[in-house]
Amino acid sequence: MINHRVAAVSGGTSGIGYAVLETLVQADVKVSFSGRRTERIQQIAVEHNESRHRVEGVAADAVDEDHVDRLFEAANHAFGERPSAFVLCAGRGLPGSVTGSDASLWEELLRVNVLGVMRQLRACATFFKDTYRSASGDIRDIVVIGSTVGRTLSAGNPVYGATKFALHSLVESLRVELCEHSVRVSLIEPGFVKTEFQATAGYDMKWFNEIEQTQGPLLSAQDVATSIRFVLEQPPHVHIDDIRIRPTRQRA
């Protein structure tokens, strides 16, 4: 893959994050990745390190203050080099409206999708900015998974959508702050993606299956990962800063 020998993926054990990990490894990029499930991390390591050491996993929560530091140090220890690309996939969902969603879960949603994202972005941005060398021609990439509900109001999913509106604001402001340091900050806005995300977050699977029937085929995690690879492969003077990707038949 052009530009990067080592990358880090936050939330790389399932869904879009795992598809990104697989895509990077197939492009001969070494990857440090994080997730909360130790057994799943070990399984991924076994699957990908049979011939040579290509991945290194870290058990971490999205809101841990040392999340990014541990990811980058794990890469340095395993591969002798810190990442020059960071893909932030870790996050959680929550179904329902302001009056209909489970208010007891609001704080955790904000903690993961906003506070956790801010901590990760700050740590990664600080590292990339501090290691910037104007004469080297190097490029660094931060890619963040947002959502179409962070741009278009979702009447049935506004609490989760509010966290994505906040995330989109953070990503754009960080792009402006870092562009002079040759750090590209990119937002990926998927529409309906069929992964384990919906069931894990407690969405009504009957409703989701109806969506798939009327607006599918839905996106796969690999579809989103392919768009991220496209962003990372651009030459250093080209920045694809925002991609909105929907199923062809998705209306909203």
Rank of each mutant, 00 (worst) to 15 (best):
I44C: 11
A45D: 13
V46L: 13
H48W: 14
H48M: 12
H48F: 13
E50D: 11
E50R: 12
S51F: 15
S51V: 10
R54H: 05
G57A: 08
G57M: 05
G57E: 09
G57T: 10
V58N: 04
A59K: 05
A60I: 13
D61M: 05
A62N: 14
V63C: 06
D64K: 01
D64R: 02
E65R: 06
E65V: 04
D66K: 09
D66H: 02
H67Y: 07
H67M: 04
V68H: 00
V68T: 14
V68F: 00
D69R: 06
D69V: 07
D69T: 09
R70V: 03
R70A: 13
L71H: 06
L71M: 09
F72S: 01
A74W: 04
A74E: 03
A74Y: 05
N76P: 01
H77C: 15
R82I: 01
R82M: 13
R82S: 15
P83S: 06
P83V: 09
S84A: 09
A85I: 08
F86Q: 06
V87Y: 03
L88I: 11
C89W: 08
C89S: 13
C89I: 07
A90N: 08
A90E: 07
G91K: 02
G93R: 05
L94I: 05
P95H: 09
P95R: 05
G96P: 02
G96W: 10
S97K: 01
S97W: 01
V98I: 13
T99N: 11
S101A: 15
S101R: 07
D102P: 00
D102A: 14
A103T: 15
S104E: 07
L105A: 12
R111P: 00
R111H: 11
V112W: 00
V112F: 03
V112R: 01
N113Q: 11
V114F: 09
L115S: 03
V117N: 08
M118R: 08
M118N: 08
R119Y: 11
R119D: 07
Q120C: 15
Q120W: 02
L121S: 03
L121G: 08
A123W: 00
A123P: 00
C124N: 03
A125G: 14
T126V: 14
T126M: 10
T126H: 12
F127H: 12
F127I: 10
K129I: 06
T131F: 10
Y132L: 01
Y132W: 15
S134W: 11
S134V: 02
S134I: 05
A135C: 08
A135I: 12
A135L: 13
G137D: 12
D138M: 04
D138E: 15
R140Q: 10
D141K: 02
D141N: 12
I142G: 04
I142C: 01
V143P: 01
V144H: 07
V144S: 09
V144W: 00
G146M: 05
G146R: 02
G146K: 04
S147D: 05
T148Q: 12
T148W: 06
V149H: 03
V149P: 10
R151T: 14
R151K: 14
T152I: 13
L153A: 15
L153C: 14
L153P: 15
